[in-house]
Amino acid sequence: MEVHIVFYILSLIIAVFSVMAVTSGRLIRSATYLLFVLLATAGLYLILGYQYLFAVQTAVYAGGIMVLFIFAILLTQRPGGRITPESVKQRVFAIILSVAGAFFSGFIIISNIGRVSHLVDMKEIDSRHIGMTLMGTGKFQYLMPFEVISVLLLACIVGAIMIARKRS
């Protein structure tokens, strides 16, 4: 019962702020709405029982990426400035496509409703298990992708510095 209420609230937040984030006229507001959406998503992970994902989502997304966005907005926008409005034609086409896509996908979901409705109880995932899975090399263990991701992150750090630095 309580879970249901929380879920509905989070879903509402996500739905409303997603739409507002992409339609807002001011960038800084868009970014704030995005932050709400991301935090609500983190809440969903909590409902699902993935505490670790909740933590990562909050720290990386809501913490790290949002800060980057804010910095970028501050660096590139004049205070209080509004984005020049897009052409109506472009917006109409985008609305038609996304609404059509949403209805199409929704139709598929509704027509398949009830196929998976049971939720098996799951014991809490301890971080020891997560650590072993992330660091192991056996089946269903992810050392290789983990290392690849770490190299990618390093490359991104170097790349971002190289791209953004001032050239004399």
Partner: peptide, 11 residues
């Protein structure tokens, strides 16, 4: 699909 809309329409 909100994201799709934003991607397609915003400048």
């Amino acid at each position: 699909f909100s994201g799709i809309y934003g991607f397609l329409s915003r400048k």
